[in-house]
Design a protein around this nucleic acid. Sequence first.
DNA 1: CTGAATTACTTAACATGTTTAGCAATTGCA
DNA 2: TGCAATTGCTAAACATGTTAAGTAATTCAG
Lengths: 146, 146
Amino acid sequence: MTRMMPSTDRSLPIALLRARERVMGPIRALLSGAGLTEQQWRVLRVVQESGPIDPTQIADKACLLLPSLTRILQKLEEKQLISRERDTEDRRRQVVQIAPAGEKIIADNLEASLELMEQTRLKMGVERYEALLDLLNELDRIDLPE
Amino acid sequence: MTRMMPSTDRSLPIALLRARERVMGPIRALLSGAGLTEQQWRVLRVVQESGPIDPTQIADKACLLLPSLTRILQKLEEKQLISRERDTEDRRRQVVQIAPAGEKIIADNLEASLELMEQTRLKMGVERYEALLDLLNELDRIDLPE
DNA sequence: CTGAATTACTTAACATGTTTAGCAATTGCA
DNA sequence: TGCAATTGCTAAACATGTTAAGTAATTCAG
């Protein structure tokens, strides 16, 4: 069973994709019940955890590009899950806050979402799961192209 | 250093995203020089490696959903990088093959692309890189929701 | 103090992701 | 044999990813 070029199997980019699909599938199913996409949920959670925060920082924490975030914030504001206002110090900036309806959606779904992740963690084995997280974080830190 | 909820740091979905961004950034830059997206490149490589193949199998190997693949194949056919014909046995199916211009694009970019992955592998350390691949593949196999 | 950078976001345009529908060819079973 | 599933792919609609441009507010050098 000789191994060819990094065909679909030993290819890191594909492996990362497949793994992500596996993990997110159930979570997406849960969130679609709440009428949220995975990204909207991520933004909502960041805003809730951090308190008042500006879009640039949200983008960083939620791993989104600003153009995507712009649209997502518009949607979340339409749905009245967040509120926005200009920063009084620096009027280029905004301050984003979670709204009551947003708090409620999080309260209604956080537990189930954490439970899904915990199941993954157990199915995979806690040690391997943690090792995987460490390796992923390391990859993110180390592979800085010149 | 107490650890909170799986905030942005120990969250597997986000870690997978960040890692993928880190790895794909340089590759995307390379491919954009050839006028290809990352997904188009993936499809092209699958078709080249496998020989004549149908869309369903391409989707599986390239980790794409069929609707995305439909559009990508249309683009690649427009650019004359692949050719398609109906399967004579089962006329629902297609047979996709790489075209000469497609072979050329691969010949022109494969080495540099493999080189980028090899750099990542070395920067991260070969052992950890392989361990990461194993863990990712394991995650893909093990976390089958009931 | 003033105009050239820079910063924080927004818009636009194109490609893909994701779900749901749809259509044609084929299978399976009564 | 006939017709209800099933299969393989496409279309459509909406959301995000990605890059490039654009805008307004701020900073900073001269």
